[in-house]
Design a protein around this nucleic acid. Structure first.
Lengths: 196, 196
DNA sequence: ACCATTATTGAACGATGTTCATTAACATTG
DNA sequence: CAATGTTAATGAACATCGTTCAATAATGGT
């Protein structure tokens, strides 16, 4: 009896993920179709479905890799005083998301949205909040640092999410990075004022 | 020669918009299809395209009415001191959006997204920001009240946008209304601390 | 009554995600 | 080396989608 073989299988899988990224960046969320993806890696739709459960799964895999990259970028932020650290974290977040806006955007906007978020996804976000909680706690706020960190992430994310889908200008002409800075400074000011 | 006739034409149009709302609320953005909409008002896809340019136009019309309703709700907020007024505005915004989350959601998430925002849309948003600028200005901030109002709207919108697509719990267990309150209080605290 | 104008229809087109029987390729066994 | 059992690739097929359009029906003014 024959045994499993695994060489060009895995290679094709990674090539496919890479092709998916390209399709997203070139044509937006709608460009990531099964047939386009298949022809990008010189194969057929059927094979795509052999590698992934669905097209949503392809998108999720692309996004998983992006989240891992984000975690690496966040960990590269130097240890400094809380304010500088929070500003640096916000900058990393904004820069990272806008650089990969096509990938990020597809997670919220396209026809490939999914409601099934796996555990590793939650874990990654939890880790991200943890890195924000640290400097927030160092500011000795009155309330729970974790809750404040969640609120800060939410603020910056809201800005970036709108910017990623090119709708920030519906509300303001201010730039995403300036807005993110303002959100961080406001959180710090409120904590120092003893309000939270 | 015959002249235009306009009676059941307009009636069908409003019935169609009403049916579109229902479809969105019952089955989410994906449920708003041309054929489903046609059968809801006992007609055919072709007729839908006689009434609207595209399915995106249908969604946009549904949204236009929602925005008008929001403006009415916002105008109903009583004149009080700035803090209470800002809190009340945030409450109206949160309540309104979450009540109509299906309609709202389709604007960002579904397969019917459009990048073409007409003037009335921009005007409505501009008006909304204006109502926020007023109480912010009354707090005598150091910076431009308008810019701060934009930032405040952005904060609350970010919270509501995530909540509307059921993804707020990816980041926090805090409730949308509590988060919105916190955003308002933080803005006020920062202004009073003289930071902005 | 006639006819110009308009609205409705429903079939058709191309594209989508997804499934699945068929076919080809391969590693292991005899 | 040949036979065999397992695995992967294929590409046609299905249902559904938005959208278009020639044909048909309805309508109101002349």
């Amino acid at each position: 009896m024959a045994r499993p073989r695994r060489y060009d299988h895995d290679a094709l899988r990674t090539r496919t993920i890479e092709a998916a990224k390209l399709l997203l960046e070139e044509g937006g969320p709608a460009a990531l179709t099964a047939r386009a993806l298949a022809s990008s890696v010189k194969t057929t739709p059927g094979t795509i479905y052999n590698l992934f459960d669905s097209m949503s799964a392809v998108l999720q895999e692309v996004n998983r890799q992006a989240l891992v990259d984000l975690a690496i970028a966040v960990d590269a932020v130097r240890e400094t005083e809380p304010r500088e650290r929070l500003l640096a974290l916000a900058e990393v977040y904004v820069t990272f998301m806008l650089d990969r806006r096509a990938v990020w955007r597809a997670l919220f906007e396209g026809p490939r949205i999914s409601n099934n978020f796996p555990d590793w996804y939650l874990a990654q976000i939890d880790g991200l909040i943890g890195r924000i909680t640290q400097p927030v706690a160092a500011l000795k706020p009155k309330g729970d640092p974790r809750l404040l960190a969640e609120q800060l992430l939410l603020s910056v994310h809201g800005i970036v999410a709108l910017a990623a889908i090119d709708r920030l200008d519906l509300i303001t002409r201010q730039k995403p990075m300036d807005l993110a800075h303002a959100a961080v400074e406001r959180m710090i000011a409120a904590i120092r004022a003893g309000a939270e």
